[in-house]
Measured scan of single mutants.
Amino acid sequence: GPGLTDLFKTEKAAVKKMAKAIMADPSKADDVYQKWADKGYTLTQLSDFLKSKTRGKYDRVYNGYMTYR
């Protein structure tokens, strides 16, 4: 089956995709945050998933999740 690194890459891609969806349409934020909360994502995990070469690119999404939880 898929190894943990593959799983991480898949999760990371999914999280980034959802983060971009929030940035494009902030009204989606609560739905996405709820999904992440259901998956039990911690802020540390989210921070790892949303690492970007562009500093602060996903800060709004991260901060939103922090206040959501």
Rank of each mutant, 00 (worst) to 15 (best):
M66C: 11
R60F: 14
M18E: 14
V32T: 08
R69K: 12
L7Q: 15
K57I: 07
A29E: 05
G40M: 05
L7W: 15
L4D: 13
F49M: 09
Y41P: 00
S47L: 07
L43M: 10
L50T: 02
L50C: 02
S27H: 06
A19L: 02
G3W: 06
W36L: 02
V32N: 03
Y68L: 02
L50I: 03
K16Q: 11
D38T: 10
Q45L: 08
A37F: 15
P2A: 11
K53G: 12
A19E: 00
D38V: 09
F49V: 04
T54V: 11
K17F: 08
Q34P: 04
T54C: 11
G64H: 03
M18N: 06
V32K: 02
L46Y: 01
G3L: 12
A19V: 04
K20W: 08
G56Y: 06
K57F: 10
G40N: 07
K57V: 07
M18P: 00
L50E: 01
Y41T: 02
Q34T: 06
A19T: 02
S47R: 15
G3M: 11
W36P: 00
T42Y: 02
P2E: 12
V61P: 02
D25K: 03
K57C: 04
A13C: 13
W36I: 01
G64N: 04
K12H: 05
T67C: 15
A37R: 08
K39D: 05
D30L: 12
A19Q: 01
D6Y: 04
T54Q: 09
G56C: 09
Y58Q: 01
T42G: 04
D30I: 12
D25W: 04
M23Q: 05
A29K: 04
M66Y: 07
L43F: 07
M18K: 03
A29C: 06
I22D: 00
A37S: 11
K28N: 08
A14M: 14
T44K: 12
A13M: 10
G40E: 04
D6M: 05
T42F: 02
V32E: 02
K20Q: 12
V61H: 01
D25I: 03
I22N: 00
K39E: 07
F8P: 07
D48L: 15
V32H: 04
R60W: 13
M23H: 03
K28F: 07
V15D: 00
F49I: 06
D59Q: 12
S52N: 05
A14Y: 11
R60Q: 14
T10H: 11
K35R: 10
L46I: 11
Q45H: 08
I22M: 06
S27F: 05
Q45M: 13
Y62V: 15
D48I: 15
S52W: 05
P26M: 07
R69G: 04
A24I: 12
S47G: 09
A14N: 11
L50F: 04
G40H: 05
D6V: 07
L43W: 04
D59P: 02
A24M: 12
T67Q: 15
T67Y: 14
A13K: 15
K17Q: 09
R55H: 12
M23N: 04
L43E: 05
A29M: 04
K9S: 06
G40S: 04
D38C: 13
L4F: 12
S47E: 09
T44D: 13
D25E: 06
I22T: 03
G40T: 02
D31E: 14
N63C: 15
N63R: 14
F49A: 05
L4N: 10
D48T: 15
A21S: 11
T44A: 14
V61R: 00
K20Y: 06
A24Q: 11
N63Y: 15
K16G: 03
F8E: 09
A14P: 02
D31A: 13
Q34I: 04
Q45R: 07
A14L: 14
K53T: 10
S47Y: 12
F49W: 13
T5I: 12
Y33E: 00
R55S: 12
A13T: 07
S27K: 10
K9P: 07
Y41N: 00
N63F: 15
Y62D: 01
P26H: 06
G3S: 14
R55N: 12
D31C: 15
D31G: 10
K35Y: 14
F8Q: 09
Q45I: 09
